[in-house]
Design a protein around this nucleic acid. Sequence first.
DNA 1: TTGACCTGTGTCACTTAGTGACATACGTTC
DNA 2: GAACGTATGTCACTAAGTGACACAGGTCAA
Lengths: 204, 204
Amino acid sequence: MPPDREDPRLTVSRHAAELFLDRGVAATSGDDIAAAAGLSKRTVWRYFRSKESAVEPLFAVSSLRFANQLSAWPLDVSIETYLHAVVRPQDQTPREIADDVLAVRLVALLPKEPALRSAWLMACHAAEETIIEMVAQRTQRWSTDFDVRLCGAAVMTALRIVDEDIATAAITDRREFTLPEVIDRMAEAIRTASTLPICDPVAP
Amino acid sequence: MPPDREDPRLTVSRHAAELFLDRGVAATSGDDIAAAAGLSKRTVWRYFRSKESAVEPLFAVSSLRFANQLSAWPLDVSIETYLHAVVRPQDQTPREIADDVLAVRLVALLPKEPALRSAWLMACHAAEETIIEMVAQRTQRWSTDFDVRLCGAAVMTALRIVDEDIATAAITDRREFTLPEVIDRMAEAIRTASTLPICDPVAP
DNA sequence: TTGACCTGTGTCACTTAGTGACATACGTTC
DNA sequence: GAACGTATGTCACTAAGTGACACAGGTCAA
């Protein structure tokens, strides 16, 4: 058996992102996306509820990578230590880098393309659920607990704001960021926003 | 001149909400909404980018009323004092109450109707901007300041989570809430989530 | 009052987003 | 290799959403 291949939606997502970026959302049709991805348009509509939501998978894997990686955050490590250990430049594949660039450009485009914002927010919402799970584990509480949900949502929001901030700075302001720099900002934001003591090592 | 009449979109929004609630989103067409509101369908599409977004105005005025009221929060008052003073049961008009009920029912419907979630998140995002302004005023900083944006977003998220929590408890669990109870939860959540000292009186 | 102007809405023809029903192709499992 | 489940393509269709233009009502200056 093949070592679980990549989600085919993600491939389509990349094509959609590129089309949206260079012609705008309004000027690209579902057929264009299908053609670019080498699929029938029917399959595209099976993958996605709407053309805007075609970029959700890209947002999910790329821009929210930190969020997803937090699922594996061991209990006995602080947020700074963990993030610096687990996300290092040399571990990034070219594909991941390309996805990040694409996602960042899309996020920077949000002010001009309100239609994409709902896809962005939906992706963030999906990540919120996984963050809430993480908070539940680190606090030894249920993921249905109100305070756990509140903390998880606050943390996710912090990640989103950092993401938006970095994306606009990088694209519209042409600033350059190193990965450790980004990680520092993420970690600091998580620490600031967390409403429960999850950032330092917790008892097992 | 008339004392600025209500936004006509809000009227349409109420009809859309009622249709969505009783037949589901998929089973109500743009034409149905137009007919219910007594408008041509063309006007409906002029008002809204999509049929799902037709409920945004309702979310905006009703469920996010606290958020909007925070714009007028005086500097020398604590959050608890202010909210209890400004939102009192006897001040609620029947229309406002009806809107709240509708909005709460819609929020409770979100898990079954993912299409509505993006409208909800977009409404929350719009409110986020006004909350950020409020934080800027209370901290004497710019609304473009990163920490201000982070705090505003965290506060808005707290409001959203309380809202979702109360809505599901009220509808699926049939719990009843008094207004002061709701206000207490909102105030507590804001206090917990705020990352800057905005909840107590601040120097002018 | 008139007429120029602006804004909001309706009509209607049109494009594009999105679905249902059915056929086909591929990989599993037995 | 037959039987099955899953993913995709084809095609006809419905519904979402737009462009162009006409018309009604209010405002304002002459």
